[in-house]
Nucleic acid binder design. Structure first.
Lengths: 240, 240
DNA sequence: CGCTGAGTTGACAAGATTCAAGGGCCGTGG
DNA sequence: CCACGGCCCTTGAATCTTGTCAACTCAGCG
């Protein structure tokens, strides 16, 4: 039943991102402390690793929201399913980023989390708000910090011309990869062109044309699913 | 120096929204309790009322972020100023909504808050995270709840055709007004057409044309800055 | 070795922007 | 009080961008 080719598995050569570069790290460490304080095995607190193959779901809309997830390797997309059956991609999550913060508001997740390439995630059981532990205050402070990180100063990906959207998409992805110590100049676009078009609210053909245009101009170098950013100043101009 | 006409002042006839319909209410009440516990006058805790005339700023980018604001009457826009001098409107805030949550992450506000019509706001001094009071846990829980409220399931205003954006804009505004007990069928658009175009990432002419088109079709009734929604099903279809 | 799906490219149509002009409202000054 | 000027809103026409449809290439896979 598996439609995953042998080349798509999580290989031993690619490595998950370091814990220190993970947005969940602070909460993760607190979970260990709390488990230790409670006399529990700390392994029960920090949750489990999960490997997700391409196209598989980390969770789906309506699933009971019991925990947070951190991408450690690969890429996860957050998807809203509209009433007319189409999917609207909300975000692509790179290693180090946290998914599932909607768990704080509702009992259930409000979007699907799907792997666009074979991925590895950490699952952290949701800390109980009511629990009275000496670390409860730290946990809440950490959650506040986590929730506050999600406010970008840059324009949303759906603003401006097609060219501006594509360049902003590339620049944004590059910046986030770089921030976690990965290569922000030369990287992979694990998602399909159709998925890029989806998040930019445009069409496949437009994405393809724009990428080729940037390639011809020497601003980038695209070959299939890999891209190299050559002229960063040109790209950053449209990313405002 | 005032460029505000006598008709634009906050009149006695229009009333601010009730405290019970305000997103800041929970934190506001906690502030009172904490002040009482500390033996302080509770009036020093809950902060002050502020009237803001049209075009005036509640705060500006870079101002020290010392507190949260709740719109009680009127309408406030959040604006990012881009490097090339243009303004990008992030949101229009209706009565009951909270502005300034960026205060939790940074020391300074990251956008301008400008009144698009004469408005009334509540200012709540930022509760200190470190303070050890019997209510500290409640305060943090309340902040988490406040931060978690800001995730819409609806498509962003900048997605889809011009027609979809305009209808989504109207439907969204209507829904938010209704939620606070105001009239969601017949209301005022206190912002200019240019400002609507700005938040929808389109042009004034397009907004004007689309509104007139919807008017001609009988879906809405626009007269200057007032609008009445007539065919809600038609409007809600595009709002997905 | 042909099938399939993703990506690219071309031609045309639909939609949005741009430029230009006119109308209405409001505040100011004669 | 009325006339004027400015600003916002609307409308029309030309232009440009993007969407749509179709065809083709290429890589992976049976």
């Amino acid at each position: 039943m598996s439609n995953v080719s042998k080349h798509e598995r999580v290989t031993k050569r690619a490595r998950p991102i370091a814990c220190r570069d993970c947005d969940l790290n602070e909460l993760c460490r607190l979970a260990v402390l709390i488990a230790h304080h409670d006399g529990r095995d700390s392994r029960t607190a920090v949750g489990t690793w999960r490997t997700i193959e391409r196209g598989a779901a980390l969770f789906r809309t309506g699933d009971a929201a019991n925990g947070l997830f951190a991408v450690r390797q690969g890429m996860i997309k957050s998807v809203h399913l509209t009433e007319d059956g189409h999917e609207r991609i909300v975000a692509f999550h790179t290693p180090g980023e946290v998914i599932g913060v909607e768990a704080f508001r509702a009992d259930a997740y409000i979007c699907d989390a799907i792997a666009v390439e074979p991925s590895l995630c950490c699952e952290l059981p949701l800390p109980e708000h009511g629990a009275q532990s000496p670390h409860a205050h730290s946990v809440l402070t950490s959650i506040v910090r986590l929730l506050s990180t999600a406010a970008p100063l840059t324009a949303p990906l759906t603003r401006g011309s097609a060219r501006e959207r594509v360049t902003r998409f590339l620049f944004d992805l590059s910046t986030r990869l770089q921030k976690r110590g990965m290569n922000g100049r030369h990287f992979k676009l694990p998602m399909s062109r159709t998925e890029i078009a989806n998040i930019l609210d445009t069409r496949v053909e437009t994405v393809s044309r724009t990428l080729q245009q940037l390639h011809r101009e020497g601003a980038i170098c695209v070959r299939g699913s890999t891209v190299e950013l050559l002229d960063l100043t040109l790209l950053s101009e449209a990313a405002r």
